[in-house]
Simulated assay, not measured.
Amino acid sequence: MENWSERLESSSEILRRQAVRVPLPDVEAERSFHQNMMRIAAAGDRKSELLDDPDVPLTDVYEDELAEMRRSFEHRLQHVAGENYYDIATAYLEGDRDDWVGALAAYYLECYYRLQERYTVDEQIFFLVILRYPNCFTVNLSFLTGDFGPEGVRYESTKHVEADLDEQDKQQLYGDCQRSQHEAAKYLREKTDCIREAVPDPDTTPFEQRRYGGFVHITGRNGATFNEILESLSPDPDRFNGEPSTPGLVDEGPEAKRAKQEFLTDAKVEL
Rank of each mutant, 00 (worst) to 15 (best):
M1R: 13
N3Y: 14
W4T: 11
R7W: 12
R7I: 15
L8T: 11
E9I: 12
S11I: 01
S11E: 09
R16E: 10
V22F: 09
P23M: 11
P25A: 13
E28G: 11
R31K: 14
H34L: 03
Q35W: 07
N36Q: 14
R39H: 07
R39N: 10
I40C: 10
R46W: 04
S48K: 02
E49P: 01
P54I: 06
D55A: 13
D55P: 00
D55H: 04
D55S: 11
L58K: 00
Y62E: 02
E63P: 00
D64N: 13
A67Q: 14
E68Y: 13
R76K: 15
H79N: 08
V80F: 02
V80R: 00
E83W: 02
D98I: 05
D99T: 09
W100R: 01
L104G: 03
A105K: 04
A105C: 12
Y107N: 02
L109C: 03
E110Q: 12
E110N: 15
C111H: 03
Y112N: 08
E117K: 15
R118L: 15
R118N: 07
T120Y: 12
Q124S: 14
I125N: 02
V129Q: 02
L131F: 05
L131M: 15
R132E: 05
P134W: 00
C136R: 03
F137T: 00
V139Q: 12
F148M: 10
P150Y: 09
S157V: 04
D166Q: 13
Q168L: 11
Y174H: 08
Q181M: 05
H182M: 10
L188T: 10
R189M: 13
R189C: 06
R189D: 15
E190R: 12
T192I: 12
C194S: 11
E197L: 06
D203N: 11
P206G: 11
F207H: 11
E208H: 06
Y212P: 06
H217Y: 14
G220R: 04
G220A: 10
N222T: 06
G223R: 04
A224E: 12
T225P: 00
F226P: 00
E228S: 13
I229M: 08
L230A: 08
E231V: 09
S232M: 07
P235Y: 06
P247D: 07
L249F: 04
G253A: 11
P254D: 15
A256N: 01
A256K: 05
E262C: 08
L264D: 06
T265K: 14
D266H: 14
A267S: 15
K268Y: 02
L271S: 11
